[in-house]
Nucleic acid binder design. Structure first.
Length: 291
DNA sequence: CACTTGACCTGTCCGC
DNA sequence: TGCGGACAGGTCAAGT
């Protein structure tokens, strides 16, 4: 589930609910989710106050006092769910159960942070996600961050720069280039498909065949779908709701993602699902012609 | 090098 | 109802 808009939504919620709280306890239920010796980790964390919660690409960064940082990647199925029995407040990256406070921890809970009376749960069904505790120097040296491309909304990212970065992958499909985090940060399967529908380009189109106007259209469409999704609180599949009670509503607006068999919003032709860059790919066969 | 494929995991859905 | 296989929104290592 989590791409840039979902991670952004999680960060805003956590900032609201966790800032100024101090870490008082830690349970690591699955070692690979938070590598290292849990006792030593807690010794570093204990008593530290959460200052801010931000992100770079899809990586969540919780900034603690004392120059420490929790770097959290949700990968495919990670969730961060806040629960405070004292106030009844709860918030999450999304969970199908609205009475989440009562049901956690559950079978996919991997890590629990205690924040005084509150708790922050890291749930991750497929165990692909991870949490790292790093000082500022180590954070900067994370290979993932060092290689990460620019933020889509970076005001310094202009059409020319974007085109240049995309052309580093000129031998591949435009979809594969968009999914490459070293080209541009934060784009995943949903928004790659949505963006390419907006730019009226077939996802399998080779980067080498695109011109400057094409790249400009791609960047504009990308910003448009990402902003719309952030405004809607991200995407939610099926019965997914976040624990605050607000459902991510982007998929109600989606043009192609998981809309196979349904009519294109502009030409009425039938949306299809195929395979591009090894990923399930949704497109309109009339609006997105492969030349 | 650039690019593709497999691996990391669990759960669900679909066809037989 | 049971079982096997394909597939799921991400990233990295290893392969061609």
């Amino acid at each position: 589930m989590p791409e840039l808009p979902e991670v952004e939504t999680v960060c805003r919620g956590l900032q609201e609910l966790c800032a100024k709280r101090s870490i008082s306890g830690l349970s690591v239920l699955w070692h690979k989710s938070f590598p290292g010796d849990p006792a030593a980790t807690l010794a570093k964390l204990a008593g530290k106050t959460i200052r801010t919660v931000g992100r770079r690409g899809k990586l969540i960064i919780i900034n603690l006092e004392g120059g420490l940082h929790l770097a959290i990647h949700l990968k495919m199925t990670g969730q961060l769910v806040f629960a405070d029995p004292a106030s009844g407040a709860h918030f999450g990256a999304g969970h199908p159960n609205d009475s989440l406070v009562d049901s956690l921890p559950d079978r996919s809970t991997r890590v629990i942070f205690e924040l005084g009376s509150a708790r922050l749960y890291f749930n991750d069904q497929r165990k692909f996600g991870y949490i790292l505790l790093l000082d500022s120097a180590a954070l900067e040296q994370l290979p993932f961050l060092q290689n990460l491309g620019p933020e889509p909304f970076d005001p310094l990212l202009d059409d020319q720069t974007f085109a240049k970065r995309m052309r580093r992958r000129k031998g591949t499909s435009v979809k594969a280039a968009l999914l490459d985090q070293t080209v541009i940060a934060g784009v995943g399967n949903i928004y790659a498909d949505e963006c390419l529908w907006g730019a009226q380009l077939h996802p399998a189109r080779l980067v080498a065949t695109l011109n400057d106007a094409d790249f400009a259209r791609i960047l504009a469409a990308l910003r448009q779908v990402l902003q719309l999704s952030i405004d809607q609180g991200g995407s939610s599949s099926r019965n997914y709701v976040n624990a605050e009670g607000k459902r991510g509503a982007y998929l109600d607006f989606a043009a192609v993602f998981q809309r196979q068999g349904k009519p294109c919003r502009t030409c009425n032709d039938t949306i299809i699902k195929t395979r591009v860059a090894g990923r399930g790919t949704h497109l309109c066969p009339s609006c997105q012609i492969l030349v």
